[in-house]
Structures are given as C-alpha cells and as structure tokens.
Amino acid sequence: MMFAVTAVAIMVIMALALIRAFMGPSVYDRILAVNMFGTKTVLFIAVLGFFAGRPDFLDIAMVYALINFIGVIAVLKFVERIAEEESADVDGKEN
C-alpha cells in the first residue's frame, strides 16, 4: 500500500518534469527536467521493485543513476560546443 502511494506520487513528479521538458523555454530548462526525470525514475524503479516484491530490480536503478549522469554531462558538453560555435559565428572574439 505505502509503496503504491509513493509510486503514484513519483509518477506525478515524473509527469510534471516531463511537461517542463516539453515546454522548456531554454535548452538548459530541458536538461534540468531530464535530469530530474532521470533521478525520479531511479527512485520509481526502486519503489516498484518493492511493490512487485522483486527487490533485485535495484541493479537497474543503479544503471539508471549512472547512465542518467553520463547522459546529462554528454548533453551539456554538446550544448556548450554548439553555443561556442554560434558565438564564434556571431563575432570572433566573444568568449
């Protein structure tokens, strides 16, 4: 019962983060929402594992925690790269 309530609550959070990722005025907002979505997915899977009585799901939660971090860093790096290129296009000396 308590796992169900928590799972539903986390799903609500995920939905909200998803909407922010859809709207996101800037790229960074979207990345933030994706990051939040990822961490909440980790918690969701952990709770779901308990709910379904199969706590060996936790391995997957770990993978998510790692992959999510690497994904966010990767996206950030590429965003930076492109922002640099754009500013280099506009005028050469802006850093």
Binding site: A21, G24, R30, I31, V34, F37, G38, T41, L48, I60
Partner: peptide, 19 residues
C-alpha cells in the same frame, strides 16, 4: 537537441514499462 533529450526520456519511459 531537444529531440535527442526527449528520446532519452522516451526510452526511460519504455524501460519503466518493461519493468
């Protein structure tokens, strides 16, 4: 860019579904 990020969300969702 946004599309790529949403793809990652998409596959997280799919994975939750598989779970």
């Amino acid at each position: 860019f946004a599309v790529v990020m949403l793809f990652s969300i998409y596959s997280l969702l799919t994975a939750s579904l598989f779970m």
